[in-house]
Write a protein that binds this DNA or RNA. Structure first.
Length: 446
RNA sequence: UCCUCAGUAGCUCAAUGGUAGAGCAUUCGGCUGUUAACCGAAGGGUUGUAGGUUCGAGUCCUACCUGAGGAGCCA
């Protein structure tokens, strides 16, 4: 047993977070944070303290505090940083159900009134908020969204980690187009070489799957398309599982299981955040297996019947995806697309060589494609033929072709866009709110 | 890249071609239970930029800049 000398350090109250308040009822503790808002009347004021885990309404009474402490709190400006000491009490009138009776306060940095915090609790426009994104993420709604994002990512990792997958990440710098279908960001690599930011880890994932059986990679992905819609970012995060000896049906089953698992976790752990976002949770509660399943052929028939201009052989547009899912209560798996609209490495259907063993998962409520994947070609001669047909240089794919020379097996996987998934979970109008610092066609700052 | 819409106080928005306005924020004053608190007062403007039409332009015309929504393309 250690002894402490009695003459030093008056006991400092225990530092807690607002999320832990319920465990400290009746105790005097301290909370370190920022002033979220302040309501005051002559001899009493209510500082709302934010600490990243929640918001705590504090009560400062003039008669119970030293004059300078009360005056300092009463004159505090929005987002000033401070540490408040006080006693936690259950209180029906306060949001969150708890309140802190202030016994002392230490102002860490006071925001000057000559240059007040710009993001007030009132309404703001998109441009202003995006310019102040570094501050906007402090607000309640943005906070809720980013915590749902955290939950989605954690669920994704937990799902794969507990189903025999090994995380093997793939490079960000890549020597050439992975797929030849999308536009890449070139990067100068030292003096003479140009490399590109990855648009998909998939080709490397196939090598990893031949080494580990079941793998996934999870990282940022870059697309240089000049897309300007509510569903697009130029930098986004994608999780890509890849499985050796997997068929299209295996890929569909894992995609379905993953989504059900993610929705379950969000509903289990992020109800308060969904409430802040005013999300209709019944829309998420109905997400259960089995999902709807539809062939590309049937999807085209359904679209044509509903007035779409689509022809067999074309890819779906944004409105087509909305039409396909608007009357559904859960996602739909659309498979067997024409080979011509898919990347070169998709395995053709043995019964109908003109269609590929690929599948897209379309989320309900108009959120569109959140997963794309399928079964890959493993026959060397067919893969060479497809590389030639797509006008791609064989020599760039030597290592990739090795995977078919040395123990090629049927295999498959998919990619899921994290931000589109989060956008759907949260019921957002625009994908830009699902990532702390979005990168878009005309926005790279802050 | 194309189409549509919008730029007025720090922020959100008003203003028939005829004196530039409100709410919030900021400052000062009041209030011991406030919930985007409230009440009273004050300061705050080269109406995105450059031209043009007009006796007179925030308002009409032209070009440009910036942003938003959508299309194509994509997860």
């Amino acid at each position: 047993m250690e002894s402490t000398s009695p003459e030093i350090t008056p006991a400092r109250p225990l530092r807690i977070t607002i999320a832990e308040a319920a465990k400290h009822l009746g105790e005097t503790v301290e909370i370190a944070g920022w002033l979220y808002n302040l309501r005051k009347s002559g001899k009493i004021c209510f500082p709302l303290l934010r600490d990243g885990t929640g918001v705590m309404q504090c009560v400062a009474v003039k008669s119970a505090l030293p004059e300078e402490t009360f005056e300092a709190l009463k004159g505090l400006t929005q987002e000033s940083s401070l540490i408040i000491t006080g006693k936690i009490r259950a209180e029906q009138r306060a949001q969150g159900g708890f309140e802190m009776d202030v016994e002392g306060a230490e102002i860490v940095q006071r925001v000057p009134e000559s240059d007040p915090y710009p993001v007030s609790p009132k309404d703001h426009g998109t441009d202003f908020l995006m310019d102040h994104r570094h501050l906007w993420i402090r607000s309640r709604r943005q906070h809720a969204i980013l915590r749902v994002r955290h939950e989605v990512i954690k669920a994704v990792r937990d799902y794969f980690d507990s189903h025999g997958f090994t995380l093997v990440d793939t490079p960000i710098f890549t020597p050439a187009a992975c797929e030849g279908t999308t536009t890449l960001f070139p990067v100068k690599y030292f003096d003479d070489e140009i490399v590109y930011l990855t648009q998909s880890g998939q080709l490397y994932n196939e090598a990893n799957a031949m080494a580990f059986g079941k793998v996934y990679c999870f990282g940022p992905t870059f697309r240089a398309e000049k897309s300007k819609t509510r569903r697009h970012l130029t930098e986004f995060w994608m999780v890509e599982p890849e499985m050796a000896y997997a068929t299209l049906e295996d890929v569909k089953r894992v995609a379905e299981e993953l989504i059900v698992f993610i929705v379950g976790r969000v509903l289990e752990n992020r109800r308060p955040e969904l409430a802040v976002l005013e999300r209709d949770v019944s829309k998420l509660e109905s997400i259960k297996a089995p999902f709807h399943r539809m062939s590309y052929d049937d999807a085209v028939k359904k679209l044509t019947a509903k007035g779409s201009e689509i022809q067999w052989g074309g890819d779906f547009g944004g409105t087509d995806e909305t039409i396909l899912t608007e009357d559904l209560d859960r996602p739909v798996l659309v498979d067997r697309y024409p080979s011509q609209v898919k990347a070169f490495y998709f395995e053709p259907d043995p019964d109908r060589p003109e269609v590929a063993l690929g599948v897209d998962v379309l989320a309900p409520e108009g959120y569109g494609e959140i997963i794309g994947g399928g079964q890959r070609i493993y026959n060397l001669d067919l893969l060479l033929k497809r590389i030639d047909e797509h006008g791609l240089p064989r020599e760039a794919f030597n290592w990739y072709l090795d995977l078919r020379k040395y123990g090629g097996v049927p295999h498959g996987g998919f990619g899921m866009g994290i931000e589109r998934c989060v956008s759907w979970m949260c019921g957002l109008e625009h994908i830009r709110e699902t990532i702390a610092f979005p990168r878009m066609l005309y926005r790279t700052r802050p």
